[in-house]
Nucleic acid binder design. Structure first.
Lengths: 142, 142
DNA sequence: ATAGGATTGACAGGTTCCTGACAATCGAGG
DNA sequence: CCTCGATTGTCAGGAACCTGTCAATCCTAT
């Protein structure tokens, strides 16, 4: 990727960072047969099992319908399963299958290595500062 | 937008920041009838007139074909024009029309206000640090 | 209890973006 | 000169994502 950002617009710099990091992450993930979006859902459902489709969509930053299609695909791939929600007949609880859990464990080191390598030259303070800046953008925009 | 990022993965935090900032930018832009991608191309071509389609695609972080479609649409909208390149008969030089230049001038303040408001609570040093971090991600990934 | 509003998962249809090809053209090396 | 590899703009087809909509369900207030 080229992406030198001559626009002088921070928003596009953030976009370029996202594209580059996604590309690096994708390289590590598709050795394990996972897409970046699938990995995102896997991590999310792993941290908070029982999430509904709509919740997954919101927290992963995509439309409800896109989350639906994504989850359906992962269900077909045997990574996820939907269970009926006893407290709400509209929704379904999304859970990891044993295969999904195993896959998440398998890719963990590779993912962590990618991000660690990318940030290797930064101090803990710098990393925290960058996260704070990014988090602030998330909170105050949209 | 929700986007609280419980994944603990910086890459997704960057994605969330991009989505949020893009949404804020889009709100400001569509009052002037521009999309975020169109604005990006406008700024890029303004800074370096005569860019080819392929170059625009690379620098804006999209496929050659997507840049082609984007530029075609903006040409139809009277914002851009393609001129033959005397030194290379394969390529065409993309230039702003007077309308395109005017539109860019018109939206400038709104765009700058959005980004300034987002970063208002950060010092110059913090802003520079965030840009350095982002730039490093762009350089070392992809 | 029940009416009204909001939310859910899913379907249909459309937009955006991408990959894979193609001929035309350029540039370097015989 | 001429060939060969690389690059350009563009077309065709598909993948990913979104909006709009619907019935079903939940929640709140009267």
């Amino acid at each position: 990727m080229d992406l030198d950002d001559p626009t002088g617009c921070v928003t596009f710099l953030v976009r370029h960072a996202w594209l580059s990091m996604r590309s690096a992450l994708a390289d590590a993930l598709d050795e394990h047969g996972l897409s970046v979006q699938q990995y995102g859902v896997l991590v999310l459902v792993s941290k908070v099992p029982g999430r509904t489709v709509a919740e997954v969509g919101r927290e992963v930053g995509t439309a409800r319908q896109s989350a639906n299609e994504l989850i359906s695909g992962m269900e077909r791939a045997g990574l996820l399963e939907r269970r009926p929600n006893p407290n709400d007949r509209r929704t379904q609880q999304v859970h990891l299958t044993p295969d999904g859990e195993q896959r998440l464990i398998d890719v963990g080191p590779a993912v962590r290595k990618v991000e660690e390598d990318l940030e290797a030259s930064f101090s803990d303070a710098d990393r925290a500062a960058a996260r704070a800046w990014l988090h602030h953008m998330v909170e105050n925009a949209g």
